[in-house]
Each structure stands twice: as C-alpha cells, then as structure tokens.
Simulated assay, not measured.
Amino acid sequence: MDRGNNSAVTKFILEGLTHRPDLQIPLFLLFLSIYVVTVVGNLGMITLIFITSHLHTPMYYLLSSLFFIDLCHSTVTTPKMLVNFVSKKNIISYNECMTQLYFFLIFIISECHMLAAMAYDHYVAICRPLLYNVIMSNQGCIWLVGGVNIMGLVGATVHTGCMLRVFFCEDNVINHYYYDVNPLLELSCSSTYINEVMVVCLSAFNIFTPTLTILSSYIFITARILHIRSTEGRSKAFSTCNSHMAAVCIFFGSAAFMYLQPSSISSMEQGKVSSVFYTILVPMLNPPIYSLRNKDVKVAMKKFKERRMF
C-alpha cells in the first residue's frame, strides 16, 4: 500500500448529507436547482459589471471579486455532493481529498476577508468621501483584492500542510458531504492536537479579524450617518449598507457556529446543517441580495434588456 501520503488510507468514502434513500432524489433536485441559480446569478452579475461602463467603480470591482469567489466556492463542493446523491459508494482518493480541501479553504477564507474589504470600501465612501478616489484607486483595489487572496492561500496552505502530517489508519468514512478539516480529524489515529490548535487559532483570526473590521467600519458609518440632517439622506446612506450586512450575518453566523464550538459541544450533524448555509446558500443569495435593492444594477439590467431587444 502506498504510504507516500503519510497514511495507510489511500481512499475516503463520503457519507453525504443524509442516510435516508427516500430523500436522495428530492435533495439532488433541490441542490441542483440551487447550484444552477448560483452559477447563473454569479456569472450574470460578473458579466453585467464587466460590460456596463458606469459600474466600473471600486465598489463593483470588489463585488465582482466576491461573486467570483462565491462561484468557485460553490463549484468546489456542490458538484461532488450532487454526485453523492445518485451514486452508491462515494469514493475519492487521498490526493483528490486533499486537493478539494485546499481549494475549499482558499475560497472560504478569501470570502471572510473580502466581506471585510467591502465594509472598508463603504466606510471610505461614507466617512472619507473626499479621499475616496485616492484611497480606493485602481492600485488600491488591486492591493486590497491581492491581500484577500493571499490570506486565503496562506490559511489554506497552513491547514492542508498540517493535515498532510496526520496519519489515517483504517477508518476512512467521512461523516460529511464534502472534505473539511474537522470531519477528517475525527478519522485520525495519530495526535491531532496541533491541528486542533491551528483550526481554533486560524478560524478565530479569519472570523474575528474581518468581523472586527466590519463592526468598526459600521460604527464609524453609523456615527457619520446620524450627523446627516435630512431623513432621506440618512435612509439612502443606510440602504447602501443593508445588503452587505445581511450577507455578513448569514455567512459569519453559520461559519462561527461550525468552527468556533468546542469539539465536546459541536456535533457533525449540526455542522452539516450550518455548513449548508455558507457553502451552498450564501453563494446563491449574494447576487440577489446585492442587486435587488441596488439602483445602479437595476438601471444596468434595464439597459442590457433594452439593448438585447433592440
């Protein structure tokens, strides 16, 4: 048996989302529909932002980056889950498992910091409007998005590197619908203390640091908005932040529930439910959340439809 992967196990089996045979086909159809909507919504918004000149601003550059992360994030996990619903035995090799884990971590960590970058953009736009074009210049946006991606790459490399040191003996059945750190650690027959410490530390950093950035930004934003005298002005300023705050609450709430609970309290069944939110539902919900109440996007969509009809 190949022991080049530091493990006696060369293949893993995914248990999937549920064991009930009568739910496999309905769940397959449900999540297939969600994935199609996710792909169409995120690709559609990226395309709309790309072809619409008046959306070529820092805010929409960050937004298109978020949609790209959501698209990749969903594509890493959902297709494999769909295959699991219709196949009898969901086998994947050790190397494929680690590859999926690596890319999943890149995009999940990047999304945490991208939401923080977008909150910072709102802060600069509302609290420092005269300096907005200087701070959020093309070069500034590139550095911001680059920093977000570096955070994702570093976090994923550390987690996956630690996971490659873990030894798996005979148990190879993963109680989940995708390959994540915690389900894999449950199968280990060697010490996982370092891995558990890294999970808590990096999860705390990748959740609390963006959360503090977002909270700080919105504290300053709220203070600034309260100084606006007109009710219409305050309402307009708050409306620009509502969509972002809704996405933040859904994403960070479910991620914190999954990764920041002690292992003695959390269960993998609860983890499956909470992970559905940030791996499957959030990528689907972000395009409508950011577009339905956005006047610029509505105008761009209207012009695009008129152009197509013409």
Rank of each mutant, 00 (worst) to 15 (best):
N138C: 02
D180M: 02
S254W: 04
S110C: 15
H113C: 09
V276K: 08
T279F: 05
A8W: 04
C112H: 13
S263M: 12
T231K: 10
G161F: 05
G4I: 07
V83F: 13
T47W: 06
N172E: 09
V173I: 07
M81T: 08
V276A: 11
L187S: 00
I49H: 06
D171S: 07
T222C: 10
A125G: 07
L101F: 05
S264M: 05
H56L: 02
N90R: 15
K305D: 07
N294I: 05
S190M: 03
G147N: 11
P262F: 13
T18P: 05
N133S: 13
I51R: 14
F251H: 12
Q100S: 13
L226Q: 05
L187Y: 01
Q270V: 02
I214V: 14
L164E: 06
P79M: 08
P262I: 10
G44L: 12
S267C: 04
P129T: 09
C141L: 01
R224W: 01
E232T: 15
K80P: 04
T38C: 13
A156Q: 09
V166D: 04
I34K: 06
S274E: 12
A246L: 09
I109P: 00
L260E: 10
L43A: 09
N133D: 14
N242P: 04
F304S: 12
M118Y: 03
S93K: 03
I265Q: 08
L23V: 06
Y290I: 15
I126V: 08
N294S: 02
R20L: 14
D296M: 14
F251Y: 15
L184K: 00
H244G: 14
Q100G: 13
Q24L: 09
Y102P: 02
H227V: 08
V158L: 03
T75L: 14
S74V: 09
T160L: 00
V36M: 12
S243F: 07
I214H: 03
T10W: 10
R20I: 13
Y35H: 10
F310Y: 12
Y218V: 04
M258P: 00
V145N: 00
V134Q: 02
F107R: 02
A246H: 11
L71K: 04
V200L: 10
V273W: 14
R165A: 03
C72P: 07
L17I: 11
R229E: 13
T78D: 12
V166M: 11
H73S: 15
A156D: 05
S33Y: 01
I228G: 04
K80C: 11
V154K: 06
S264L: 06
F257R: 12
I174V: 00
L71P: 01
G161M: 02
C162R: 03
L101N: 02
L101P: 00
L27Y: 11
M309H: 01
R293K: 15
W143H: 01
S274Y: 15
I228C: 08
S230Y: 10
I207A: 14
P262H: 10
I126G: 07
M114E: 15
